[in-house]
Simulated scan of single mutants.
Amino acid sequence: MFQNVKEFIANYPTESPKIRKYENYIDFYESIFLKFKNQDIRVLEIGVQHGGSLELWKALTTPSSQIVGLDILPQTKQHEDERVRIFVGDQGDERFLTNVSNEAGEFDIIIDDGSHIPFHQKATFEKFFFENLRDGGIYVVEDCHTSYWRDYGGGLRKSGSFIEFSKTLVDEVNAWHGQRKKAEEVSNYTKQIRAIRFESSMVIFEKAQMTAPKNIELGVETIDVKTLPVAGSMGGIMNRLRKVEFLRSLVRRSPFLWRLMSKQIRRPD
């Protein structure tokens, strides 16, 4: 077991199975596997091809950890050993994904390095994130640059790409703060995605059972903001108007009104 990813790469024999990862992935995987250091975990990788990344996951986990791979190529069965199991099938086949989901069990880390086709990435995420990722687990989608490639059905801000889909989930994570504030009003995304992280060509999701966040207030107020005096030529009017919620809302939404109000706040001599 190697202590870190860089050590693994520096000592990886040239005749070993091929690995191809973007440079910025290295530090990320360093931090992720550090979270599970010395723990027996289960890792699922969609898309194993030459098997090099399977060697990386084995090197970064304990001898009792289990790794499951999924690939469309039957030849990838050769990568199986006492720690690795391979399912052969099409990532774009919903029935195949369901069979794997039912048979493979739960995982601590799921990595999608499969076809890189945006609608495959979305369908796989919606299956495995909810049904197979444990609470506290990490779901990684690699090579999201294909969301910008026309050959993959992508494009800048192209509807249907995995990047655009992930952007919508940012709103879902924050749904508690919008109009949907009750548990029955929010989606499963809101209830189970703790955090979303965007890296270059990569989107990472952290899973947890979420409830509406509560404010924690400690200490005493040192400034009475409700009666904070407003000076200036319009001070008297502003003091009266700011008691009206509708007008306060207008000020928050208007840069001009905000500047006007801020100029009236009495500054200490």
Rank of each mutant, 00 (worst) to 15 (best):
M238Y: 10
F119K: 14
V186G: 00
K158C: 13
S64L: 11
V88Q: 12
G105R: 07
Q264Y: 00
W258G: 05
E172M: 07
I19E: 02
S53D: 07
K167S: 05
Q66R: 14
K58G: 06
S101G: 11
V48F: 00
K37P: 05
Q66P: 07
W149D: 00
G47L: 06
K226D: 15
T227M: 12
V68L: 03
Y139K: 11
R150P: 01
D113W: 06
K182F: 15
D108Q: 00
G51M: 06
L257E: 08
N132H: 08
Q75I: 15
Q209S: 14
G114W: 07
M202P: 05
N215H: 14
I237L: 11
N4W: 00
A175C: 09
I223V: 14
M1S: 12
Q75M: 15
W258N: 14
I72T: 13
F8Q: 01
P255S: 05
V186K: 07
F36G: 00
G160T: 05
V173P: 10
I110W: 04
G155K: 05
E206S: 07
Y189V: 08
V140S: 03
E142N: 04
L34M: 15
F119G: 04
K263S: 02
K263I: 01
D40N: 07
G232P: 13
E164M: 14
F8D: 08
V203N: 10
F125S: 02
L260H: 09
W176G: 08
K214M: 08
S262K: 13
R252V: 04
